[in-house]
Design a protein around this nucleic acid. Structure first.
Length: 434
RNA sequence: UCCCUGGUAGCUCAGCUGGUUAGAGCACAUGACUGUUAAUCAUGGGGUCGCUGGUUCAAGUCCAGCCCGGGGAGCCA
């Protein structure tokens, strides 16, 4: 292991803007080439390199399919059976850690451009085949969730986490390109953000016998901060203050909600983006939101195509098990491209209600919840607008003030009852991207 | 919290209207294999059918309660 200070000196010597790639070699293991660069960097073909990764399968007593996490692709390392004895070959079990050195040559078999002709192989870590639960086959997400320590070794999880990196990085990239300052709102706070959600309490008081005040209530003056403190549900209030001096800021950090809720869209811990901008109108707000979605999609399509192709196929398999009328019309990649290439629909709340009132599901009485001006849109209404009517992301504005939060801006005196705050109804599309 | 749905081998699942010793693929073990692509072939081991109670000559199968998972709704973002 190189020390942190040594690494820093290596980075420090590089010209600005140049990534320390070392020709595909990582800076902390100078002798090891990532599989991604071995496959993509054609100048490496014909050279001798070393790769290190975990065995996915060992075929025909001869071919190690190796994965190192840099890509979803598993190149095959071809063993010379006269040099690698049966005792060693028996250790190439699924998930064993292996280091291979050899020449990267044009593949003799079909299915890949290059393969490694191994001259030296070392098993760095054995994997007990009788105890290892992940097989080279599709597993259910429920099962993988229970194998929390091993799930990243699967194509599905590793693909998702590589893409999460691309999305997280892209969020910072987008706001930076647009002149926003990354703002860190407090995570432990006394602010309840005007009741945005149920909060987790942060306390060092003894839960069984807390100190009490004169009225018999818990005395939070005795607590760590001298007052009742909780985990943040929103950094909005602090970000607004910063925006009034810095102009443009955004938050992107952990947020906590103690809702008694059990759906895939509700997490107790999630990362939230909150841009705050001085001197911006509603149209700028909508442009910013649409631009962010498209920036992230474009970035993922550019940098994560291997992973998307895999997830696209996985989704198609799952869709095929559903009845025809329940299947999604578009695959994952097609949907991403569709969102990227088409402008988002922008309508007012009143338009949305009118569309719903004229819709087939409403007239046939298929909506579970009533539709009339003044009610809040239910999930089924938003889904109809996005999935059936417009078939693209929709932004609904101009909600009746009565059903929106008080901090949202109204259109002004005389134009009663409307909120000007954009309500990005794109969440259905966005959430299904994940 | 409500609605729907499921729980059978390590994993994914089949098991009809209740009826002999509960099956398949994968995984695992042993053997074979110098061009395989989730390799293949042969042989083998592996089960408290979620739990408890009930109906019945007989329950994986029917009934009730409970536990756990998944999907949806509400809540919320």
């Amino acid at each position: 292991m190189r020390s942190a200070s040594r690494l820093f000196r290596i980075f420090a010597r590089l010209p600005p803007g140049q990534a320390p790639g070392f020709g595909g070699r990582s800076p902390d293991h100078m002798d090891i080439t990532t599989i991604k660069s071995a496959l993509d960097n054609e100048t490496l073909t014909g050279t001798t390199i070393t790769v290190a990764g975990w065995v996915r399968t060992f075929r025909n007593d001869r071919f190690i399919a190796l994965n190192d996490g840099s890509t979803i692709r598993n190149p095959q390392c071809v063993i010379d059976q006269e040099k690698v004895g049966p005792e060693t070959r028996a250790r190439f079990t699924t998930s064993a850690a292996v280091k291979c050195t050899g020449e990267l040559v044009a593949s003799q078999g079909s299915g890949q451009r290059v393969e490694m002709k191994v001259t030296a192989v070392e098993v760095l870590g054995d994997s007990d085949a009788t105890a290892y639960p992940i097989q080279p086959k599709k597993h259910s997400l429920e099962f993988l969730r229970e194998q929390a320590h091993l799930r990243f070794r699967t194509n599905t999880y590793s693909a998702v986490f590589r893409m999460r990196h691309q999305v997280s990085f892209g969020i910072h990239e987008y706001f930076d390109l647009n002149g926003y300052n990354y703002f860190h709102a407090p995570i432990i706070t006394a602010s309840d953000a005007e009741g945005a959600g149920e909060m987790f309490r942060v306390s060092v008081l003894d839960a069984k016998t807390p100190p009490l005040d004169d009225q018999g209530a818990v005395d939070f003056k005795e607590d760590f901060f001298g007052r009742e403190s909780r985990l943040t549900v929103s950094g909005q209030l602090q970000a607004e203050l910063a925006a009034l001096a810095l102009g443009k800021v955004y938050t992107f950090g952990p947020t906590f909600r103690a809702e008694n809720s059990n759906t895939t869209r509700h997490l107790a811990e999630f990362w939230m983006i909150e841009p705050e901008c001085a001197f911006m109108d509603l149209h700028g707000d909508m442009d910013l939101a649409e631009g962010l979605c498209k920036h992230l999609i474009a970035r993922v399509l550019k940098n994560s195509m291997d992973d998307l192709v895999f997830l696209d196929a996985r989704l198609k398999e799952e869709e095929a098990t559903k009845p025809k009328e329940q299947r999604a019309e578009m695959g994952l990649i097609d949907r991403l491209k569709f969102v990227l290439e088409n402008p988002f629909e922008r309508i007012t709340y009143t338009d949305a209600i009118n569309i719903l009132l004229r819709s087939k599901p409403f007239q046939k009485g298929q909506f579970q919840f009533p539709v009339e001006w003044g009610i809040d849109l239910q999930s089924e209404h938003e889904r109809f607008l996005v999935e059936k009517h417009f078939k693209k992301p929709v932004i609904v504005t101009g909600y009746p003030a009565k059903i929106k939060a008080f901090y949202m801006r109204t259109n002004g005196p005389g134009d009663f009852g409307y909120s000007e705050k954009a309500r990005p109804s794109l969440r259905w599309t966005c959430s299904s991207l994940a």
